[in-house]
Amino acid sequence: MKMVDPDVMVRRDDDRQSQRAASQGVKMSARDVKVFYGDNEAIKGIDLDIMENEVIAFIGPSGCGKSTFLRTLNRMNDTIENCRIEGKVTLDGEDIYDPSLDVVLLRAKVGMVFQKPNPFPKSIYDNIAYGPRLHGLAKRKYDLDEIVESSLRKAGLWEEVKDRLDRPGTGLSGGQQQRLCIARAIAVSPEVILMDEPCSALDPIATAKIEELIDELTESYTIAIVTHSMQQAARVSHRTAYFHLGELVEVNDTETVFTNPEHELTEAYITGRFG
């Protein structure tokens, strides 16, 4: 009765177990997090730990608050008027909503990739160099070139664009643009990368490339990904969190969530009874 093919899911399960065994430290943690838009409570008290070097997927029906929760992790909700946040979110034990914390530095540590590819209307080179320049990560032109090249290599885009770094980033295809955005996020050496439905605007081939990339990135980064595709969650994540109407219903190993969910709402969602 399960929708997801177990073969796909457990493809690289052995690697994952060993990786996660190596580093089980808590990277970010949320305690009783509530988000209000005006009077409307979009998120109703969520407790969740995100482990170091894991990929955690947030799934759930539209409007369940998974994107909103993701955005609380690097305070992107600050830009929305009327948005109020309660509770505590920590990064390496430090409260990120502490007034003395510089939100700019937080976002350099917790990068974000958005639903729609959003390259700046600048050259490919300048797109990648944007963050390092802001944060003064490169002292010389040579260092900056290094960062741009290594970021593009990590994002698997270097071979495709190395001859046209001075061309506008908006001229790339959708999938390339999204990898450019990932490279741009990597370039500031974040510790955590948040991805908000990064493949929803892409075709299956581009999606496969991004998923492959996510797999490679887990070696050095912690990744939280919101996705509408359960297959994608099953393919890329170590753990999966199921959100429903602003509440965290269940969080567990991805395999457990998809083969033996604890909660009936989770089961209803992954078997396609609603969503």
């Binding site: 690097n74 830009t79 974000m112 958005f114 700046f120 944007y130 802001l134 944060h135 741009r184 996020a185």
Partner: peptide, 11 residues
């Protein structure tokens, strides 16, 4: 989305 992208990089 462009503003978000820039703010998300710590600008």
């Amino acid at each position: 989305s462009l503003r978000d992208g820039s703010l998300g990089l710590g600008a």
